[in-house]
Computed example of a mutant assay.
Amino acid sequence: MSDGIDYGKLMHRAMRGLIQQVLEGVQRDGLPGEHHFFITFDTGHPDAELADWLSDRYPDEMTVVMQHWYDNLDVTDDGFSVTLNFGDAPERLYIPYDAIKTFVDPSVEFGLRFESQEEDDDDGDDPTPPDGPGHDPDPKTPTEHHDAEVVSLDRFRK
């Protein structure tokens, strides 16, 4: 028996389940209204799948945007696959839920940030999201250092 309840781990599991439910709805019905997502994920995660040229260009993390053009969204219990357009080059990605670092829907000021133990032990500086095709230079991701938390994005407005 363990010494206590790991609320952080339970919260991560619940929030990743929420992302799965949202993506299942999008798979079934498409993106409603103005909803769109900025999803930052760990490209070095052992189960993440992306083209070699993308992993070479973004060896640590990448922020993708699901908004106007995405195709073949396939949501599973462990992650999701989607084809996105990178400068007129469609590429298929597989993103495990465990690889997701941030999930933001700025249309409704909703955001989640996931911290790992390794990130909690670093110097606390947030990496700047990469620039380039398929990336938004200002994804308005939350910057608090807490486990899986819903945050208000009001302070990121200009």
Score class of each variant (00 low, 15 high):
46 P>G: 09
121 D>N: 13
132 G>D: 03
92 R>Q: 08
5 I>M: 06
66 M>C: 04
15 M>P: 01
35 H>G: 02
38 F>D: 03
40 T>S: 14
94 Y>G: 02
124 G>C: 10
72 N>F: 08
5 I>K: 11
74 D>C: 11
81 S>T: 15
110 F>H: 07
127 P>R: 10
96 P>G: 09
63 T>M: 09
63 T>N: 09
65 V>Y: 00
76 T>C: 05
123 D>Q: 12
28 R>Q: 14
144 E>G: 12
31 L>N: 02
85 N>I: 09
137 P>W: 02
153 L>K: 06
94 Y>H: 15
3 D>K: 13
154 D>C: 06
116 S>V: 13
148 A>H: 01
82 V>T: 04
139 P>V: 10
92 R>T: 10
144 E>V: 15
32 P>V: 14
62 M>P: 00
27 Q>M: 14
117 Q>C: 00
18 L>W: 09
74 D>Y: 05
80 F>I: 10
90 P>V: 11
126 D>I: 15
92 R>C: 04
17 G>V: 12
126 D>M: 15
95 I>T: 12
101 K>N: 11
66 M>R: 01
95 I>Q: 02
128 T>I: 15
156 F>H: 10
98 D>T: 15
153 L>S: 05
93 L>G: 01
118 E>S: 12
35 H>D: 11
155 R>M: 09
45 H>A: 10
84 L>E: 01
61 E>C: 11
111 G>I: 13
63 T>F: 03
102 T>M: 03
